[in-house]
């Protein structure tokens, strides 16, 4: 198939970028979106031009490295699918495709389609863990976890940290991402001891990193390649409210 591509080119974070037109012939409909970009880059290199920089790694939809706004949608039109798992059979021959980096203030562009998502790292470092020093764990079966709780925790834990939720949100809110992490760890009995401080620290760090608030549009969940449900935000808000109130009373005493 033939494609007209409009791709965001930006040398580095210090300069402004622009959309550049490219034409690509002979794309296999069985190739993935990133394989289509590989083909373009081979073409560019053979012409002595600099290839388009984009992030990618596992190419099987689990590492969360790939991103891209495709025709304005994070990870493109296919539901529950990362860019690397999106296949060209979902596009029309002759179609024009606009390819941009994820757009969000806390995710500055590094080069072309590559963005800096280290703001997510800080949130995990602030509290996205259960403190369990190596070697200190009791027998795995000493902690029974209700099956439905384990399943819910797993649903939340399947987040790949790609940042599509932030890119889709008009407020650049990270609440789906943070909510997923909070839900995963706060739902489990192992995470109960740190439940309050976890949610308080993570939300504090999220605000500090410049992510916006949630105004309940649900775009985040709609584009999430792992279909993390909006419930995780409700869960986080509930845990946050409870922790805040508890904090007031603890401090008053």
């Amino acid at each position: 198939m033939k494609l007209n591509l409009k791709i965001w080119r930006q040398k580095n974070s210090a300069v402004t970028g622009r959309l550049v037109d490219y034409q690509l012939d002979d794309v296999s409909p069985d190739s993935s979106f990133l394989e289509m970009l590989d083909l373009l880059n081979e073409q560019l290199v053979s012409e002595g031009e600099e290839p388009v920089a984009f992030d990618h790694d596992c190419r099987e939809g689990i590492c969360g490295t790939c991103s891209l706004n495709i025709n304005g949608i994070p990870h493109g039109p296919q539901k529950a699918t990362t860019t690397c798992q999106l296949h060209m059979r979902h596009f029309e021959d002759g179609e024009t495709i606009v390819i941009e980096p994820f757009r969000a203030k806390p995710f500055p562009v590094i080069s072309d389609l590559i963005i800096d998502r280290s703001a997510f790292e800080g949130i995990t470092q602030a509290g996205g863990f259960i403190t369990a020093r190596t070697g200190s764990a009791p027998d795995g079966n000493s902690i029974a976890v209700r099956k439905n709780i384990a399943e819910k925790a797993m649903d939340a834990a399947s987040c790949i940290g790609c940042g599509a939720c932030v890119a889709a949100c008009k407020n650049a809110s990270a609440m789906l991402y943070v909510g997923a992490k909070v839900s995963h760890l706060n739902l489990l009995p192992q995470g109960a001891a740190e439940k309050d401080r976890r949610v308080l620290s993570m939300v504090w760090q999220m605000d500090r990193a410049g992510f916006g608030n949630c105004t309940n549009y649900g775009e985040c969940s709609a584009v999430c390649p792992k279909e993390i449900p909006l419930d995780v935000i409700a869960k986080m808000n509930r845990d946050y409210a409870v922790a805040t109130v508890k904090n007031i009373f603890t401090q008053a005493m």
Binding site: I130, A132, G135, A137, I143, A153, A157, L188, Q190
Partner: peptide, 8 residues
């Protein structure tokens, strides 16, 4: 160890 860390 993994159970204690919250691996579901």
């Amino acid at each position: 160890q993994c159970v204690a860390q919250g691996v579901p």
